[in-house]
């Protein structure tokens, strides 16, 4: 795979390692790390910090029966496993786990102008979704109330800040209003995580926002 140019920030990797990211952001980080050996190495360094922190914890006494209870738990059998999903040429494994299959299994919903989306997980903090942009088309102009991560899975897009190819992640800050456009020639498929509902400039879109789930 071509070396990625745009990576996950150290702060975001630390938060993923510490386990404090909202699930939607954790999904984008896991997907990027699946595609990027550099970030995988950095992440394992941050996990090692977590290991050192655990090792430094002053022991808290466990109950007398704790070991026996754990051995009984072990004897009861293996931990339940999630069924193994198929591999996919476009979707990295963590995304396949959420879709419940490969690209063919994604349940797309139309947004506008041929663009489509599929929400993969959503909670109070953030939403993760797959977005499909036809070749050469633009995402409606939007600004963010919070941080947005966009990971390219297929095709490419360009906006005011640069060019993004498969494996690249764009981290958009709160104040950024940008206009991503899919490169001509092929559709662009991205995985995004957004901290809060997007704030569109168009009043109509803003009114429709709760219904469109974008």
């Amino acid at each position: 795979m071509k070396a990625t140019k745009h990576h996950i920030s150290d702060e975001m990797l630390i938060a993923y390692s510490a386990g404090t990211l909202p699930e939607a952001f954790a999904l984008v980080v896991a997907a990027h790390v699946s595609m990027c050996d550099g970030c995988r190495t950095t992440l394992s360094a941050f996990d090692a910090v977590g290991g050192a922190v655990l090792e430094r914890c002053s022991a808290v006494k466990v109950s007398d029966g704790c070991l026996a209870a754990t051995l009984a738990r072990i004897a009861r059998g293996d931990a339940p496993r999630r069924p193994e999903c198929c591999k996919d040429a476009v979707l990295p494994k963590p995304v396949v786990d959420y879709v419940g299959g490969g690209l063919d299994a994604v349940r797309w919903r139309p947004i506008s102008g041929g663009a489509r989306q599929a929400v993969l997980c959503a909670d109070k903090a953030a939403t993760a979704r797959l977005v499909y942009l036809p070749a050469g088309s633009a995402v409606p102009d939007h600004s963010h109330r919070g941080i947005e991560l966009t990971l390219v899975l297929k095709g490419a897009f360009r906006d005011e800040t640069g060019h993004f190819a498969p494996g690249d992640v764009e981290t958009s800050a709160e104040e950024l209003t940008h206009r991503p456009v899919a490169e001509p020639g092929a559709p662009c498929i991205c995985l995004t995580a957004t901290e809060a509902p997007l704030r569109y400039r168009s009043l109509l879109v803003r009114i429709l926002q709760p219904f469109l789930h974008i």
Partner: peptide
């Protein structure tokens, strides 16, 4: 220690935050 930390962290996300933990391939 690092390996046990990752197991404990994931259990914490599951039990205390009731969220899933997406892991890299």
């Amino acid at each position: 220690a690092t390996w046990i930390f990752t197991i404990a962290r994931n259990r914490r996300i599951d039990a205390l935050r009731k969220a899933r933990r997406p892991e890299p391939e």
